[in-house]
Amino acid sequence: MTRYADDLALAHRLADAADAISTARFRALDLRVDSKPDLTPVSDADTAVEREIRSLLADHRPGDGLLGEEYGEQPAAGPDGRRWVVDPIDGTKNFVRGVPVWATLIALLEGDRPVLGLVSAPALGRRWWAALGGGAYAGPDLASGAPIGVSGVTDLADASFCYSSLTGWEEAGRLDAVLQLMRDVWRSRAYGDFYGYMLLAEGALDVMVEPELSLWDVAALVPIVTEAGGTFTDLSGGPAPAAGENSAVATNGPLHDEILARLGRPAER
Rank of each mutant, 00 (worst) to 15 (best):
1 M>Q: 03
2 T>I: 06
3 R>N: 15
4 Y>N: 00
8 L>D: 10
9 A>R: 11
16 D>Y: 01
17 A>Q: 05
18 A>E: 03
19 D>L: 00
19 D>C: 04
19 D>T: 09
20 A>D: 14
21 I>P: 05
22 S>A: 14
24 A>Q: 13
26 F>G: 08
27 R>Q: 14
28 A>Q: 01
31 L>F: 11
33 V>P: 03
33 V>E: 05
36 K>P: 02
39 L>M: 08
40 T>K: 07
40 T>G: 02
46 D>T: 12
47 T>W: 04
47 T>G: 03
49 V>H: 02
50 E>H: 11
52 E>A: 11
52 E>L: 11
54 R>Q: 05
55 S>W: 08
55 S>G: 11
58 A>P: 09
63 G>A: 05
64 D>L: 04
64 D>S: 06
66 L>H: 04
69 E>T: 02
69 E>S: 02
71 Y>C: 01
72 G>K: 11
75 P>G: 02
80 D>M: 12
82 R>Y: 07
86 V>I: 15
90 D>N: 06
92 T>I: 03
93 K>W: 02
93 K>T: 14
94 N>D: 11
95 F>L: 06
95 F>H: 05
96 V>A: 10
100 P>G: 02
101 V>H: 04
104 T>H: 10
107 A>Y: 04
109 L>Y: 00
114 P>C: 08
117 G>I: 14
118 L>M: 05
118 L>I: 13
126 R>Y: 00
126 R>T: 04
127 R>E: 01
128 W>F: 14
131 A>S: 13
131 A>M: 12
132 L>K: 08
133 G>H: 03
136 A>N: 05
143 A>K: 10
144 S>R: 14
148 I>N: 01
151 S>P: 11
153 V>C: 15
154 T>H: 07
155 D>Y: 00
156 L>C: 06
156 L>R: 04
157 A>V: 15
162 C>Q: 04
164 S>T: 15
165 S>D: 05
167 T>Q: 14
171 E>D: 08
177 A>R: 05
178 V>R: 02
179 L>S: 07
184 D>Y: 06
185 V>R: 04
187 R>M: 07
187 R>W: 09
187 R>D: 08
189 R>P: 01
193 D>M: 03
194 F>Y: 09
194 F>H: 05
195 Y>S: 13
196 G>W: 02
200 L>D: 00
201 A>N: 05
201 A>E: 08
203 G>A: 12
207 V>W: 11
208 M>K: 04
211 P>Y: 07
211 P>A: 07
212 E>C: 08
213 L>Y: 12
213 L>M: 06
215 L>N: 01
217 D>T: 02
217 D>E: 12
219 A>I: 14
219 A>S: 14
220 A>H: 06
222 V>P: 06
223 P>C: 03
226 T>I: 03
228 A>F: 03
232 F>Q: 02
233 T>Q: 10
237 G>Y: 01
238 G>I: 10
239 P>G: 09
240 A>M: 08
247 S>C: 10
247 S>I: 09
249 V>L: 13
251 T>V: 08
251 T>E: 03
254 P>Q: 01
255 L>P: 01
255 L>K: 00
257 D>Y: 00
258 E>D: 13
259 I>Q: 02
261 A>R: 15
261 A>T: 15
262 R>M: 07
262 R>G: 02
264 G>I: 13
266 P>C: 05
